[in-house]
Design a protein around this nucleic acid. Structure first.
Lengths: 158, 158
DNA sequence: TCAATTTAGTTATGAACAATAACTGTTATG
DNA sequence: CATAACAGTTATTGTTCATAACTAAATTGA
């Protein structure tokens, strides 16, 4: 009783295998662990293009949505505006994108990819596709679509 | 052709709805967005217990694995040892866990939860369970088990 | 036996990332 | 026209994550 703060001082059994069973009951835990693996793989691929997850996402959205505003980008990707500025700056400095003044609202910029940005985006998309296919090769099409459906359901809960 | 860096300077069409279609092809993107929602919900629940995701995970593993070492914890949860120290310090200061010297190896500590730690862990586990059930109520049991199976497959790829 | 190496935990520190307040310039409102 | 709202920026802070270097203890092996 008294020695509860140093229980098992006689036997002191060591843990051979660490159990995370109580966390495994949570789908969120499984998702987090899987996402860690995905993210590591993704960052590895993107390093080739000198991009990180966020800057890649930003580039893709600019390529896909020519003329998008920074404020639209920040809300679409849930990046705070101030933090987006430095990302945009870096992409602009690398001449992957340009800021064009919007003539009808001189506060805003329209973002567009340059030809180089377009090409880099294309290459990165293909490379990621290849890596995702490898990473997910043990998961058949039916499962993948179930996973996507579940993720969309969760995402819609916010 | 020539004006590609300031294309559409006449019309400047605005983007009404931002499309993230090219990212939606990646399962990783769906998983990330879903996980953001899960994490926000989780942190909200854990705030009640003055815990964050990592400190909660650490507490659970100590409760489940009495006598676990810090090095085992850090590798189980992929937390760098130096960063784990401050987490352990905080839990110890709150008297949720104790550090006991391992008699046969005086370098190591055996970590154990106190009664208060045990109880807090129990409460937190129940609260999270409740919230997860709510968050995932649109996902039936079959889908959930498919998701978990897919996540484990991905996790195993590392 | 004992010097060299390894291990567990710690300290200090810096880099990367995220969040907030406050500013400039511009547009919208009443 | 004065006031408020908005887009983007700057400055700054806090949080999170990673690395190097340290202390103390245990292990290795000549």
């Amino acid at each position: 009783m008294k020695q509860s703060s140093s229980a098992q001082s006689r036997s002191q059994p060591e843990i051979a295998e660490v159990s995370d069973a109580p966390l495994r009951q949570f789908m969120g835990y499984h998702i987090k662990r899987a996402f860690n693996v995905i993210q590591a793989d993704l960052n590895d691929v993107l390093k080739t293009f000198e991009l990180r997850m966020v800057s890649f996402s930003v580039l893709v959205l600019i390529v896909e949505n020519p003329g998008i505003r920074q404020s639209q980008l920040s809300s679409a990707l849930a990046i705070e505006r101030p933090n987006l500025v430095v990302i945009i700056d870096a992409l602009e400095k690398r001449e992957l994108i340009v800021r064009d003044r919007l003539l009808t609202d001189r506060r805003a910029y329209l973002l567009q990819a340059t030809m180089a940005g377009d090409q880099l985006c294309e290459k990165a998309l293909r490379a990621i596709n290849t890596h995702e296919n490898k990473l997910f090769e043990g998961i058949d099409a039916a499962m993948r679509s179930t996973v996507v459906q579940a993720m969309r359901t969760i995402e819609a809960q916010s």
